[in-house]
Design a protein around this nucleic acid. Structure first.
Length: 941
RNA sequence: GCAGGCGUGGCGAAAUUGGCAGACGCACUAGACUUAGGAUCUAGCGGAGCAAUCCAUGGGGGUUCAAGUCCCUUCGCCUGCACCA
């Protein structure tokens, strides 16, 4: 019917020659900056996933241009990094050449899709003219003290033989090859990202990122507020500093835990009596991978330090210190105060090592009243293992089924009290204590005494050893029967809040981490609000110089060194005399040397280290012999400012002219994968905020709106991969069905943000749709304006498609165009204007075929040079509307009436319908509901 | 465990935000044109029923004249973070 290949080539050349998509840096028009993450030009070429996001943003770019915006929609290459280096090693060619080849292929594929990129601004991060400025910006970080060299335990990938940032080694696995990472002490360049932690959180307010992206960033930064508290070491000057978010529980501290790497272990080596055991544990901890160490499900391990003890600064009690790998060296101070009563991990550790548990917060049940009488009491659960039943006392109508309860007498311990109550009320004497759980603060009203009570109730679980029984000693008002029942009966019949809660707690003892009433805590006792308790404790700590309020972050500084060849050389020189010295700015770019071997070395040094003629240099300060830094920058460096370069890509005086940066401002719409939500997006924002602080860029935040596309899965619903053999090559699809069909299908495939499965039949369907549009040209008549009967739907479709593309609901935009096409097909003949509008609306999604049809049908100027159609609301009003008629909410009929028929008339007409009359027989209408132009609902009895 | 999201035909999905559930497309069925069909056109297509009608948006409950949409509860799936003190 028509040759897609020829048509596509023809129009791609047309756009190119006319330079239609080149943005201007000087314009009266309003600007709109659309950015899609630039690809890594890998050897395997374009993926159908790229097609989805590029087409989506291309559609928006084309629409915005037709709406009169000065649109910047650039494209470039993120080409430094390991894959190019691997490829170069394997094929023994320079990575630069491999990258050039790949870019050529990739660019050809993008051009074959007809994207409206501004190719005049194209660059690669590997171009010396580009990485000159990446290096220059690094020097700015260094000048401001935000780039520093530090000896640090880093994540080391033994397979890639390079260090990784925390972001690249999330979960203890190398992001690139999946190898478990190790810890390695290395001297690294670091960027002080932590000093921007708060700004990175606050700045999100100025953006319109998707909520899930904002949340992911906030989680990654992991800000928490709490207190730093100093614990004295018994008999020593030094204090052990801990970070806690729960200073309110300080009176409940019964031990401390430090990480196996903590420095006091080295400092007080000679004080530790069980050093051998401690060192053995340290070695074990080091050997574990990050994954093994942070496995939440594994049992707690640790060693008690003999010879070192800490002192709780609040009550001067001596408490033991343990080392355990559940305390991380790199968070907080690497040491914690442990409150087993109110922390899951400390609780598990205390249970395992049999450490005292002191409750300081009581859960509150019931509702507190004024003038309550206070009591201490117990609730005891007695379990008979042989019968698998629990002892209850049944008060029947006097209070239902309960466990044994009672009030504690003066000088009686909790356990004594419980045993006494069991004996008195039931007669059983041969019992054994299993568990005692944390107390509950319970409030209730006693009818028999007409009094409100506040009780501190401790729950206990006992096991029956044998049936030995003495006679019950009951008081006169104790009229109940004792009954052994199973668990289900209890869950069904025990209604009292305190008793059922106690039952659940004794069966499943756990720390209490919620809000409650403070106990055992001197000046905090009685407080019931967590924040009040925390604030009061911090006041106390600060007044007594025992600690202070502080903030902590999960985010750490950015490890910026990589031991690789294919990256930007870090422009620093080390001089024996002057220390670290910057490469002078006029010597930038500091080029990568020409070498023959790119393999990473076994020593953990970058391949650059072996190129002595490059490494050896003179100190720019004193002229003495000096050596260059041989590590290179991470892959993320080049992508941390590339959107700025697009604005002024050919500038050789600075990275971008300030006035140009001001004109383009923030990126209006930025699309990329969800996998970059916490890495690229955090690095880029940090970098940009730094440049803003230096007065180098005019906006606080780089990106206004960030959206993320869903993945295109294989036809079998699995992620496309070579090994699964479900990879779809876009080139093949373009060859068979044409670029327009592929573009249309990927827009129609489903919700843009959700994953979608590939379907070649679906693609065929879209090709059919385009063919049907093609055939419409044979229905053209010679009239100019819209066909009257189509005016309504045309205007509606213009509105729908415009809104849908702008809000990225591409699937419904395509669907609306299909509906319009169906209408055209049902109409005898269509006008040029009818046809032109349909083609224009489809043009952002299928640009080639629509332009071709405009030309061969003589519809006038090419679409890309004419404005976007507007709609007329008055033409969208339906003269006749369909009204649904319901009786009691069930559909019983429908009717066609003129628009805006009044309520009374609608009810009258509704009642005339045959089926309605049938349902009204012998019924009384009690209510008539009318929603004009929509529905009539008659409520009958 | 915490946070965010999702659950609608055989499949991908719509639903003007509380107003006729399943638009549009795929697959399928029947028919037409045809030497032929991976072309095109016509009709059908959630389930049950001859029908009137009834049942259906993961399950249960509620609010309402009216619920896919709002509230409570429960189950299942996906994503991110995860011994972060």
């Amino acid at each position: 019917m028509y040759n897609t290949k020829e048509i596509e080539k023809k129009w791609q050349n047309f756009w190119k020659e006319k330079k239609l998509f080149n943005a201007s840096n000087v314009s009266e028009q309003e600007k709109y900056y659309i950015l899609v993450e630039f690809p890594y030009p890998s050897g395997s070429g374009l993926h159908v996933g790229h097609v989805r996001s590029y087409t989506a943003l291309d559609a928006i770019a084309r629409l915005k241009r037709m709406k009169g915006y000065n649109v910047l929609f650039p494209m470039g290459w993120d080409a430094f990094g390991a894959p190019a280096e691997q490829y170069a090693i394997k094929n023994q060619i320079h990575p630069k050449i491999a990258v050039e080849e790949n870019i050529k292929v990739f660019k050809g594929q993008l051009e074959s899709m007809g994207y409206s990129f501004d190719w005049e601004r194209e660059f690669s991060t590997t171009d010396p003219e580009y990485y000159k400025w990446t290096q220059w910006q690094f020097l700015k970080f260094y000048e401001k003290g935000l780039a520093y060299k530090a000896e640090k335990e880093i994540n080391w990938c033994p397979n890639c033989k390079t260090g990784l940032s925390n972001e690249d080694a999330a979960g203890g696995v190398c992001e690139r090859c999946g190898t478990k990472t190790e810890k390695k002490l290395k001297n690294q360049w670091m960027l002080k990202m932590t000093s921007y932690a708060d700004r990175l959180i606050d700045g999100l307010k100025e953006t319109e990122f998707l909520d899930k992206i904002k949340t992911a960033q906030i989680n990654w930064i992991g800000k928490s507020t709490g207190a730093s508290v100093n614990f004295k070491l018994n008999g020593l000057e030094e204090e052990l500093e801990v970070y806690t978010t729960r200073p309110d529980t300080l009176f409940g501290v019964t031990f401390m835990v430090i990480s196996p790497e903590h420095k006091i272990l080295e400092t007080y080596k000679n004080k530790i009596q069980n050093l051998a055991e401690v060192e053995k544990y340290q070695t074990l901890a080091k050997q574990k991978t990050e994954i093994e160490r942070t496995d939440v499900t594994k049992e707690k391990t640790g060693v008690k330090l003999e010879g070192l003890e800490a002192i709780n600064p609040l009550n001067n009690k001596q408490i033991p210190i343990y080392i355990s790998d559940y305390v991380l060296a790199n968070y907080g101070t690497g040491a914690i105060m442990a409150v087993p009563a109110h922390d899951e991990r400390d609780y598990a550790f205390a249970k395992k090592f049999n450490i005292e548990i002191i409750p300081v917060i009581e859960e509150i049940t019931g509702s507190p009243k004024e003038n309550e009488e206070k009591k201490k009491s117990i609730v005891a659960v007695l379990y008979d293992e042989t019968k698998d039943k629990y002892l209850t006392i049944n008060w029947a109508s006097l209070g239902g089924r309960l466990f044994i309860g009672g009030t504690r007498k003066e000088n009686e311990t909790i356990v004594e009290c419980a045993k006494r109550e069991i004996k008195e009320e039931t007669g059983y004497t041969n019992i054994e204590l299993i568990t005692e759980i944390l107390p509950i603060n319970h409030h209730y009203y006693a009818y028999n005494k007409d009094k409100y009570y506040e009780i501190d109730s401790t729950g206990l679980l006992f096991k029956l050893i044998d049936d030995t029984k003495i006679e019950q000693q009951l008081e006169e008002d104790e009229k109940f029967t004792i009954e052994w029942v199973d668990k289900n009966t209890i869950l069904k019949e025990v209604k009292d809040e305190l008793h059922i809660k106690t039952f659940n707690n004794v069966l499943n003892p756990s720390p209490y981490t919620g809000d409650g009433k403070m106990i055992n805590s001197e000046f905090l006792n009685g407080l019931t609000n967590k924040n009040d308790s925390i604030n009061k404790m911090i006041e106390y700590l600060e007044a007594n110089k025992l600690g202070h309020k502080t903030t902590n972050y999960r985010l750490q500084d950015w490890i910026f060194s990589r031991q690789r060849f294919w990256g930007e050389p870090i422009p620093m020189i080390h001089c024996e005399k002057c220390g670290w010295v910057k490469v002078p700015e006029d010597e930038l770019p500091l080029l990568l040397p020409e070498v023959t071997a790119y393999e990473p070395t076994e020593t953990g040094e970058s391949p650059l280290a072996s190129i002595t003629e490059w490494v050896n240099t003179t100190c720019p300060e004193c002229g003495a012999h000096a050596t260059r830094e041989t590590d290179t920058m991470p892959n993320w460096a080049g992508s941390s400012w590339y959107w700025l370069r697009y604005m002024d890509a050919k500038n050789d005086k600075c990275f971008a002219d300030f006035d140009v940066l001001k004109y383009w401002g923030m990126v209006d719409l930025y699309n990329g994968g969800m996998e970059h939500a916490t890495r690229h997006l955090l690095y880029a924002r940090f970098w940009h905020q730094f440049l803003y602080d230096q007065g180098l860029v005019p906006t606080k935040e780089p990106f206004k709106k960030r959206v993320a596309h869903g993945m295109i899965l294989g036809e079998n619903n699995e992620k496309m991969s070579k090994s699964k053999g479900n990879v779809i090559n876009p080139d093949d699809m373009v060859k068979t069905y044409g670029a327009d069909a592929l573009r249309t299908f990927e827009m129609f495939i489903g919700d843009y943000e959700k994953d979608a499965s590939w379907s070649e039949n679906g693609l065929k369907g879209c090709k059919r749709f385009l063919d049907r549009i093609y055939r419409l040209k044979d229905k053209l008549n010679d009239k100019d304006s819209y066909t009257e009967s189509l005016e309504n739907i045309i205007n509606k479709t213009i509105k729908k498609v415009t809104e849908d593309i702008e809000t990225m609901n591409f699937n419904t935009a395509v669907s609306a165009l299909m509906i319009l096409t169906n209408e055209y097909e049902k109409t005898e003949t269509i006008t040029k204007e009818d046809y032109r509008t349909l083609l224009t609306l489809l043009n952002p999604i299928a640009p080639h075929i629509t332009e071709e049809l405009v030309e061969i049908s003589n519809l006038g100027t090419p679409i890309c040079e004419t404005p976007w159609p507007t709609y007329d609301e008055t033409k969208m009003i339906d003269s006749i509307v369909n009204i649904a008629v319901q009786i009691n909410g069930k559909l019983r009929g429908s009717m066609e009436v003129p628009n805006n028929t009044d309520k009374e008339e609608l009810i009258r007409l509704a009642k005339e319908l045959d089926n309605v009359q049938k349902h009204l027989l012998d019924k009384e209408i009690i209510k008539e509901i009318v929603v004009p132009n929509k529905i009539v609902n008659l409520v009958v009895k």
